[in-house]
């Protein structure tokens, strides 16, 4: 049981590191917008439409 004298301080050191990391992340602005980040992972980065389609659309719009 004497190992507790070593293990508990080690656990505390890890805890301090975790808190430091968390505070750094908060100050870095990573938690500023919780709603969007939660949602972003579900969004497609690349929507199905291609740029060609947009060009076609603008072409038809420009027709007199």
């Amino acid at each position: 049981m004497d190992s507790l004298y070593l293990l508990i301080p080690i656990a505390l050191v890890f805890c301090v590191i975790a808190i430091k990391l968390l505070l750094w992340a908060i100050d870095n602005g990573q938690y500023d917008d919780l709603d969007k980040e939660a949602w972003r992972i579900l969004a497609d980065d690349d929507p199905p439409a291609t740029t060609d389609k947009i060009e076609q659309d603008t072409d038809t719009d420009n027709k007199p």
């Binding site: 508990i8 805890c15 975790a18 808190i19 968390l22 505070l23 908060i26 100050d27 938690y31 500023d32």
Partner: peptide, 25 residues
């Protein structure tokens, strides 16, 4: 407002991590 939000979050985060440690002991 932005500052207060961050401070609140820091306090909450620290309390959460600390709670786990103290809970373990």
């Amino acid at each position: 407002m932005e500052q207060e939000y961050r401070i609140e979050l820091r306090r909450l985060g620290v309390a959460g991590l600390g709670m786990m440690q103290v809970g373990m002991f």
